[in-house]
Design a protein around this nucleic acid. Structure first.
Lengths: 141, 141
DNA sequence: ATAATTAAGGATAAATTTGTCCGGAATTAT
DNA sequence: ATAATTCCGGACAAATTTATCCTTAATTAT
């Protein structure tokens, strides 16, 4: 469904959202441990998220990563940043063009699934799903 | 969503279903043209579908591929044959274990999407969606 | 029998994704 | 200033997916 990179990115965002009330940032090692991901690869994904301005970073001692407070981020934005719009746009059978006018044989059926998916991705905020991590109601690894 | 191989496989099955009333089989070249796929790679996927007994094949002049008549095949079976059960089983965030008991933060939301997807995959029969290809109501390329 | 046709299957290559390594830049504390 | 810490970014490596090539096996028609 999502790429590995996108899975990591989502978990990163949710993890950092769950720590949004702490006054200090989370470092790479901390993050990689929390989501059980390879450190160096995680660093690459963090970079992308920073470039896309979904995260903030600061270097040096006591540096690290954190979410922008006062900025609501949906899961959709995270997925778009890493995997692009394919998951909610591309034809399930891979047709270059697939539309009402020129549909693949399963077009209508999968438009419904994609709309369902899109709805959930865009209404799910990372702060919302971040709650419950610290309390071990939900898990990231 | 699906692998390229699985996209090709689905289109192959639908295409052959759309020709199920013809008395002759469809050859590799014919199929690859009909679904706009690389010939050699398509041959590999055809092999897999034959091994999984979702297709029949015969060699030699006038040989080719066709669906088994009297055997209803759902899109689910095709997807399982090529991509495995991941799409309807694996955690969207990639957690090794993700269940009611030990859920990822978006477990419930995506259970719903997956159920939706599963429902459509298992109720969609290739013969059903095959109709409309010949008449150019639906397209495979 | 022989030649022509078509799928089967193994080996290999190209492309993409995932993952690692390392030197450099920024920041902080001493 | 210096050293320690931490992110940045480029190069590279491994794994996986996608794609190609070529020989063999089966079948049919001549």
């Amino acid at each position: 469904m999502f790429s590995k990179a996108c899975e990591y990115a989502s978990k990163i965002m949710i993890y950092l959202a769950s720590k949004r009330d702490e006054d200090k940032l989370a470092g790479l090692k901390d993050i990689a441990k929390a989501i059980n991901s390879p450190e160096a690869y995680t660093a690459k994904i963090l970079q992308q998220l920073v470039r896309r301005e979904l995260l903030l970073s600061v270097r040096g001692p006591n540096g690290g990563f954190g979410i922008h407070k006062n900025k609501e981020v949906s899961l959709m934005e995270v997925v778009m940043a890493i995997d692009g719009e394919g998951i909610v746009k591309k034809c399930i059978l891979g047709l270059e063009v697939c539309s009402e006018n020129r549909p693949c044989p399963v077009h209508d059926k999968f438009v419904a699934v994609r709309d369902h998916l899109r709805g959930i991705l865009s209404t799910t905020l990372i702060t919302e799903v971040g709650d419950g991590i610290e309390e071990s109601i939900f898990f990231l690894k």
